[in-house]
């Protein structure tokens, strides 16, 4: 990275940044909700849907759709940041805190880890530090803006980890695998960052 950025001749901000403290570096605000997916949108019927937490000893805990719905719901309103440069403010979600799921797993004797990998319908995976999905920072979300989450946005359920770039908020999530060692997921194996903090602009492998 060159330390002194190259000044683009004749380039000026087109509009004032109305929310400088909410927009991470290199991002712009959009009012749309763009869709980015690497393949076709999976369509798993709720009767065949379940959510599983697995730990490194092989113990697992599984919820059906109805069992998951019976857990206490959260309704976070958060800003989201996509690595393709758009950010969207004040998005309204409904889901289950990952803390609630891990509490149930611990009650069953399952061990915490240092990392997790989220796995999904369609084969997508993404890796996250355990500490990034606990402590009120992550949800399994199935509602968006007062309605069921649409399939192209990850419905019936997606992971929601709004403080990291949005590819970490895995669409069509079906479970979390608890790991002691980091194991790169889908985009991470293809050159994207293992953590993906938008405020540090951790877009690609090798970014600080």
């Amino acid at each position: 990275m060159s330390d002194t950025p190259f000044i683009a001749r004749g380039f000026h901000a087109k509009r004032a940044n109305a929310a400088p403290n909410r927009l991470p570096p290199g991002q712009y605000e959009t009012r749309d909700f763009p869709v980015l997916s690497a393949g076709p949108t999976p369509h798993t019927p709720l009767s065949k849907w379940d959510f599983t937490i697995l730990d490194s000893s092989g113990t697992s805990l599984r919820w059906t759709w109805d069992e998951l719905q019976a857990l206490p719901h959260d309704t976070p309103t958060v800003d989201i940041h996509c690595v393709t440069k758009w950010s969207k403010f004040d998005t309204r979600w409904e889901g289950i805190s990952v803390d609630t799921l891990f509490d149930a797993a611990r009650a069953k004797g399952m061990a915490d880890g240092a990392f997790i990998v989220a796995f999904c319908d369609g084969g997508y995976t993404t890796n996250l530090p355990f500490s990034d999905v606990t402590g009120g920072k992550a949800w399994v979300a199935f509602g968006y803006d007062g309605a069921p989450l649409p399939p192209e946005h990850g419905g019936p359920a997606r992971l929601l980890v709004p403080h990291l770039y949005f590819w970490k908020s895995a669409k069509w999530v079906r479970g979390l695998r608890i790991l002691q060692r980091d194991a790169p997921g889908f985009w991470e194996q293809l050159g994207y960052h293992d953590r993906g903090d938008p405020w540090r602009e951790q877009r690609y492998q090798g970014d600080p």
Partner: peptide, 13 residues
């Protein structure tokens, strides 16, 4: 990445 003289920057893919 486009950087303006005042440091403002914009990026697109």
């Amino acid at each position: 990445r486009l950087v303006a003289e005042d440091g403002y920057q914009a990026q697109r893919s």
